[in-house]
Design a protein around this nucleic acid. Sequence first.
DNA 1: CGTGGGGTATGAGTTTTTGGAATGTCTTTG
DNA 2: CAAAGACATTCCAAAAACTCATACCCCACG
Lengths: 298, 298
Amino acid sequence: MRRFLPPLNSLKAFEAAARHLSVTTAAEELCVTQGAVSKQIRQLESRLGVGLFERRANGILLTAAGQQYLPFVTAALDSLDSATEQLQRGTRRRERLLLSVTPSFTSSWLISRIHDFEQQYPHLQVDLISGDGKPDFAGTEVDMAIRCLLPERAGQYHRVLVNERLLLVASPDVLEMKSMLQPLDLLQHRLLTQVTRPGMWDEFLQQLGLEATHATYGAGFEHFFMSIKAAEEGLGLGLIPDFLAQESISKGRLVNPLGLSVMSGFAYYLFCPGYKAELLKVIQFRDWLAQELLSAPL
Amino acid sequence: MRRFLPPLNSLKAFEAAARHLSVTTAAEELCVTQGAVSKQIRQLESRLGVGLFERRANGILLTAAGQQYLPFVTAALDSLDSATEQLQRGTRRRERLLLSVTPSFTSSWLISRIHDFEQQYPHLQVDLISGDGKPDFAGTEVDMAIRCLLPERAGQYHRVLVNERLLLVASPDVLEMKSMLQPLDLLQHRLLTQVTRPGMWDEFLQQLGLEATHATYGAGFEHFFMSIKAAEEGLGLGLIPDFLAQESISKGRLVNPLGLSVMSGFAYYLFCPGYKAELLKVIQFRDWLAQELLSAPL
DNA sequence: CGTGGGGTATGAGTTTTTGGAATGTCTTTG
DNA sequence: CAAAGACATTCCAAAAACTCATACCCCACG
């Protein structure tokens, strides 16, 4: 168990600088001068024999080596921090896992399963907040985010969760009133729209060979979970991601009258900042999620 | 992400001392004097406001707090060490997971499944060595051990894997020669014994209401996997743990003529030194093992 | 095209921390 | 009761880390 560890304080400096991509703000976080941090980093680099940063006039960038190293250093320091805090409090407070998830995914999928995660990892306290735009972890404590967005930002960990398949759904009551036996009947109904997905129905109708211009649109909603409610209430036909509609369908509140669906081209992704990709709690949630998605085919 | 970390070098001292339960040998490992380590530990304790060791004249003991803290500190330092090594080699060498397992468990159960583990965790290189006595991790790099022994040593992590059920087995050929229709027929056969389990047959026979003194014993073997081979060769009747005999039975090389079995009171346990209980690789193996044992009922 | 500003590196000197050696204390053992 | 083994402590030297001031680099902007 003889170890060859670099000077640990210089790791602290490296980690802070790498997280902020700035020596100066790292120095602020550590309550020392900028020069001190700079020297610590140099020392670490020469000790390791590996360059960790690329120095630019307007800041620093992580080298490939630095990017490889950072998540592990962050994970180690983080776990020391939380172990130390627990020790001092004497009480074993549960560690927090803070997730930012779209409202639809939360209410239609996550909430009913999160209990299972909590049972499996009782030492974690899961906190859910809803979020929608591009995931931005800077200045927040959010550990991971789930979004229906393509990954853009470099240096973020991401992983596809599900490719979105939209199902045509309607309340059974609605179908009793106006029958729906062939795609053409669609045009007899109000179509519930998503304000964030203007072309959604157009694409769908086009695939069926229908003229989008003949369609009648009903209310528009920001989130799918609202459209689900609306469809259940008989306000019109919805076009809803399969895994979100699943519950309502299995409970008979919605049906997919013609068995029609379409791949929307969107997908749900899991994001987290690169430097958190190796945190134990993050790994655990990630694995659990993967398993749930595998074991609960749609 | 502002952290409150204790001085990291003092953690190094604490961790080494706690692993060795000795300030002096920790000092040797760290290549400093005993006094230096002693001071570092004191510093850490006063900084944390928590006593980590109980000082005795003949050595040191971990307090409850120290025992709680140690695995996390070890895990963090260990992961820093391995990340640093990977960084310096430039090459991502796989991390090693060294297991010490009884020969029988290895050959009859583990080997056929370990491939699955390696696929699931490709970053780990599993090395298997066989071992038998009480698990002793001092001075070795063994991460975990599997033994058929009750846990004794305090401070070791342990977890029961399976309670041992012994099946009566015989080669089909043997049964053709001498039939076996009732327990009494047992006494017509040679009974293969385990040199490590003197009372094994006695208990079994007793449960069936037979006089052990009337039994004829055949060869004795050190390990069950040898007895399995012997039984397959028709050397006599074996009394073999169910999960070890499973494969031979399903392939028809052995049969359990009367459907008899007995709980031996022994159990297989997984062990690892307490300070390694939080290592990522250890957690991963532990979880995989649990799942395999659950999903492969006997 | 020079200049200011934001960012980083560096050098000298000072402060803080750490380590070594020797010594002290305590306890177990023969 | 002396000796040995283990940890704590004290004093001092050495090393490390920090600050301050300054130099440097590049980009943006007038």
